[in-house]
Design a protein around this nucleic acid. Structure first.
Lengths: 297, 297
DNA sequence: TAAAAATACTCCATAGGTATTTTAT
DNA sequence: ATAAAATACCTATGGAGTATTTTTA
């Protein structure tokens, strides 16, 4: 049995006339009659009651018509769905985001994606550590990671990583802090401060970056507290537990009793985009386009 | 697109290997590859990610597989349903029954049909008048009528009518009635009795039959009351409102304070089975078989 | 280099066409 | 008598086979 049989059956059932059905199908009447007979033979059931004056459906044909209509609709629907997925207009993506981009880039991105790819369901997970994102990408838990450069130590050939932008650093200070008066803060100023840092256990790129900054300025930072989330970090600063160095976009997170001051110097940290190198999902490609245009402005 | 394409697609998607899929489909690998390419070309979507080492589904292919499985299952289910209906093992029938068979034949028939044709849904309507049954058959409201002979006046060529059995008459009497003492009752005994009859307005075959019986015995019956249902008729007799002549199977209706006595003589009334002559439903044929074997015993 | 998909070509089964007959009203 | 489905027969498209090449891990 082929779809041809079902299409022909539907035409005859609807026209109740082999000749008209053949016209509708742009074919001659005899081959249509043959194909219907072939279908009936294969089913072992008479679907039509024919006389030279009229064609009627048997009860079995009546029921078969209902099923056949649903099947032919399902065939079309399946094609359309595949086409939409192939075009990246439909699909599902899991997106992981590093803490410092969670409060500025992520909300704007969510809005753009919803607008430009309404058929693509995107699930966001913010406040992820770079190391966890790499693992999650590989495990398939996420498809797209906004993260920090994962370092040079290991092999990341299975990931496609590209820089989105370079972000300056800010120092988060309690509003009443002596350094809050300055237009900018140099690393040296922080030598005797307690630093609030991300709890990383080696997986947090920000922890490593801050440590590196201090060391390049010639001192070992005094770590006051380790926190899991960026929001907690800023809150701790507001509580007077110390100061912190964060990438610029964290300034979107406004907490009463804190001020942001630029960190002196040219230090930058990359925000990178990572995907699985072998992931060719069209929805992913579309989402990456949206993301890049979002970052561009 | 043909079902062939969907079947081939499913095989390759499940085997993840063109060669093995071709084996499973009992065909060579090149035509299978061709058909899959043809399917992809028609959809305008790549369904498989092929290398010489492995075959993987694209996201579109993944979604398509889910749909295709459902479609192929639906095709099989449609065939099976049509076959079951064609064999009369599935379907729906509306059965009309004259009042006098409603209380004896109908319950037994319902049980037999449920047992022997569990897939056939049968809806019963009892206490129908023969004239209404003829109209209901023609209108398609019922498919099968247990009724009385509809007379010779009109044309019933569009109906298939056959006699099921001939039923004797009984007289229903109040238990205290003077005639209740007799072993049987003759028509003449009823000359001065009030008769409870079916309200027919010409459509009740029983009304006509009782009238005919009395006239053949040489008297015009005194009609005490006209009732719509057989159960009401017997209840009225119990209430002392008169006596009644009914076909034998009504005796299944036992009402306190009434007795049934045979009517003297050889008078009989036919119980007939009627269907639309052009109704070739297999479920109907099966149901008629069950009905006949039910009546035979 | 070996396994597997793609390509090249050949063949024949059968879908579909034309001409005609049968059938039922 | 006529409309319409069935039958008979023919044609040619394209599905499937065999042999071979290409690809990539």
């Amino acid at each position: 049995m082929e779809l041809r049989h079902l299409r022909y059956f539907q035409a005859v059932a609807e026209e109740r006339h082999f000749g008209r059905a053949a016209d509708r199908l742009h074919m001659a009447q005899p081959p249509l009659s043959q194909q219907i007979r072939q279908l009936e033979a294969e089913l072992g059931v008479t679907l039509f009651e024919r006389t030279t004056r009229r064609v009627d459906l048997t009860p079995a044909g009546e029921a078969y018509l209902v099923r056949v209509r649903a099947i032919l609709r399902a065939v079309d629907a399946a094609s359309e769905e595949a086409q939409r997925i192939g075009a990246g207009l439909e699909g599902r993506l899991e997106l992981g985001c590093v803490g410092s981009a969670t409060y500025s880039l992520l909300p704007a991105l969510a809005r753009s994606l919803r607008e430009q790819l309404p058929g693509v369901e995107v699930a966001f997970q913010g406040e992820m550590l770079t190391g966890d994102q790499v693992a999650a990408l590989r495990a398939g838990t996420i498809d797209l990671a906004l993260m920090r450069p994962p370092g040079e130590s290991a092999d990341f050939a299975d990931l496609a990583i590209s820089t989105l932008r370079q972000e300056r650093f800010l120092v988060v200070l309690p509003a009443a802090h002596r350094l809050a008066a300055a237009a900018e803060v140099s690393l040296g100023d922080l030598r005797d401060e307690d630093l609030i840092v991300h709890a990383g256990h080696g997986r947090s790129a920000m922890y490593s970056a801050v440590l590196g900054l201090c060391r390049s300025a010639g001192f070992e930072p005094r770590v006051g507290h380790e926190v899991a989330e960026t929001s907690t970090l800023v809150t701790f600063v507001a509580g007077g537990l110390g100061v912190a160095i964060v990438p610029e976009p964290v300034a979107a997170l406004v907490v009463e009793g804190t001020v942001y001051r630029p960190l002196a110097g040219e230090a930058r940290i990359d925000l990178v985009l990572a995907t699985r190198a072998d992931d060719d999902s069209a929805a992913l490609r579309r989402a990456v386009e949206v993301l890049r245009s979002q970052v561009a402005q």
